[in-house]
Amino acid sequence: MKWFTAWRRRPWAGYAVVLAALAIIAVAYAGVSSGGASAQASDTQASAQDIAKGKELFNQTCSSCHGANAQGTRTAPSLIGVGAASVDFQVGTGRMPAMNPGAQIPRKKPVFNEEQTRQIAAYIASLGGGPAIPSNDQVDPKTGDAALGGKLFRANCAQCHNFAGSGGALTGGKYAPPLNKATPTQIYEAMVTGPQAMPVFNDTTITPAQKRAIIAYVTQTRSEVNPGGSGLGRIGPVAEGLAGWLVGIGLMVVAAAWLTARKPKKKHND
Rank of each mutant, 00 (worst) to 15 (best):
P199N: 09
G250D: 02
R234E: 04
R212K: 15
G233R: 02
Y188R: 03
E240N: 07
W258S: 12
Y175S: 10
Q220H: 12
N162G: 13
G172R: 01
L259F: 11
G172S: 14
K174E: 13
P237F: 01
I235Y: 01
G229S: 07
P177N: 05
Q196K: 11
A169W: 04
L179C: 04
T204F: 00
S223H: 12
G241N: 14
G172F: 14
T193I: 13
T260Q: 08
G241D: 12
V192G: 00
I249C: 06
G233L: 03
A213R: 00
D203Y: 07
P178H: 12
T185C: 11
G228N: 13
K174Y: 10
I187C: 00
Q159L: 11
G241L: 04
V238E: 11
T204C: 00
V254T: 11
V225K: 05
V192I: 15
G167L: 05
F163M: 15
D203H: 11
C160S: 12
A164H: 12
W245R: 02
Y188W: 15
N162S: 10
V200H: 00
A261D: 02
C160W: 08
V254C: 11
Y175H: 09
V200Y: 00
F163H: 05
E189P: 03
G172I: 15
G168Q: 08
G233N: 03
K181G: 06
R212P: 06
V225S: 13
A182T: 07
A257V: 14
R222D: 09
G250H: 04
I215S: 00
M191T: 10
N162C: 10
Q210M: 06
L170E: 14
V225E: 05
G248K: 09
G172H: 04
G250V: 13
N202I: 13
W245G: 04
G172T: 13
Q196F: 08
I215G: 00
R234Y: 09
E189R: 08
I215F: 00
V192T: 05
T183A: 10
E240L: 10
G244Q: 02
D203A: 03
L232M: 08
Y188V: 12
L170I: 12
F201H: 03
E240I: 15
A255E: 05
L246M: 08
D203S: 09
N202M: 10
V218S: 05
G167W: 03
E240F: 04
N226H: 10
T185Q: 15
L242E: 01
I235A: 08
I206P: 00
I187L: 15
V238C: 02
A213K: 01
G173M: 10
P199W: 13
E224H: 04
Q159I: 15
T219F: 06
M191C: 11
V225G: 10
I215V: 12
T221V: 14
N162D: 07
A255K: 01
A176E: 09
W258H: 02
T260L: 13
P195D: 12
V254K: 09
L242C: 02
T221L: 11
E240G: 01
M252I: 06
P199R: 06
G241H: 07
K174W: 13
T207C: 07
I206F: 01
P178S: 14
G168F: 13
G248S: 08
P184F: 09
A176D: 10
N226D: 14
L246S: 09
A239M: 03
R222Y: 07
F201M: 08
E189A: 11
V200G: 09
S166T: 08
V247A: 09
G194L: 04
P237N: 03
T205A: 15
